[in-house]
Design a protein around this nucleic acid. Structure first.
Lengths: 196, 196
DNA sequence: TTGCAAAACTACGGCCATTAGTTTATACTA
DNA sequence: TAGTATAAACTAATGGCCGTAGTTTTGCAA
């Protein structure tokens, strides 16, 4: 028997995240969320400004959760090992919270501040993990963009059911990660081997 | 002065594609499409079954257009040159028709037949272009998945505004393509160099 | 010229987001 | 412990959307 006065902003955002994880393909509605929370739709407006604002909050929530996971994955590792762990942690996150991962993609324009902060955390993690490879500033950005594109693309296609062939997806993902690490080792190794 | 009896299924689908290209971020509505076509919303139902069915038709239209572009890009090229041309053609397509590219992603479940056909065309193009590398069946699938993931991921992040750093995006894309081609050459080259 | 099929229309129902105004529960104060 | 203020719930209502039913109109074909 739920008493009144039990919701708050975070509880609504987390419930929305659960809802889209349960049904990643259909989009979030306030009506469905209210039903799920045992509340009338207008009551949600005591805690959120609008559906769009809620979507933004969910995106921030997802980006923060993702950053936590990636940061944890990198603890105690360095170099190629850390990069591989991060890549797999990203894929694990998307598998565990598919709706949240999707919601994090659709970038809203306004109120970028919080989302940018969450994205900045992830960027910092990647930068620190790439440090030992001693890339130039430009190369580092290329490398970060490449990693993000590869991992995000693979996971998105996988979740959309875009990979139909009967070959193990884990192996394909490992193939992709290996490609990235080999390229990085080659670039970095070439520089180390040719010091002056 | 538009006369009556001028719409048909293809015209509606193409108008929908134009509409989402003009506004890739907001989703397709029949009301807006009808306004754009100078027609009342129910009139559209003479040519489509439902909004969902229209979305599927737009996805098929987009996948077919993409397949055409990729096929054209590969004409007269082979090996690494063909792969690079295909990657760039994909990115060009997404830049030219951002809404159509997005619509092609969201894979509907039902009526997969037509979409599967369009996807099969693209798969065949990639397979034929990869032939000279003489990969095993499994390696070929890994290679196709990797290419799709990289290109799709880069383009998706680029269009979502996910790349904020001030470094040229063309160069980053080239970095990614080079990584792929180098990996492929190494694998293939290793096999050729070590024949027995 | 006339008839018919298809493509347009009007009218309507149901669901959704959102706003306005009201009631009620909880927490703080005395 | 009793009273009050605040905030969170509610009901009611609006306008937009998709989709259906039934009607009118158009353009082609006989």
């Amino acid at each position: 028997m739920p008493s009144k006065r039990r919701l708050n902003h975070d509880a609504v955002v987390e419930a929305a995240a659960e809802l889209i994880d349960a049904n990643p393909n259909q989009e979030l509605t306030l009506a469905e969320l209210a039903r799920h929370l045992g509340v009338r739709t207008p009551s949600l407006y005591n805690h959120i400004g609008s559906l769009d604002e809620l979507r933004q909050a969910v995106a921030v929530y997802g980006a923060t959760a993702l950053g936590d996971r990636l940061g944890n994955a990198a603890i105690g590792r360095s170099g190629a090992s850390a990069l591989a762990a991060i890549a797999w942690a990203y894929r694990d996150f998307a598998a565990a919270r598919p709706g949240l991962h999707l919601a994090t993609q659709r970038a809203p324009q306004a109120d970028e501040v919080e989302l940018a902060r969450a994205a900045g955390v992830i960027l910092d993690i990647l930068r620190r993990v790439l440090e030992p490879f001693e890339l130039s500033e430009t190369e580092e950005i290329h490398a970060i963009r490449a990693l993000r594109a590869m991992v995000h693309g693979f996971v998105s296609l996988e979740q959309a059911g875009g990979f139909g062939m009967p070959v193990d997806l884990d192996e394909s993902f490992q193939y992709l990660v290996n490609m990235y690490l080999a390229h990085l080792a080659e670039d970095s190794g070439a520089r180390v081997r040719k010091p002056g």
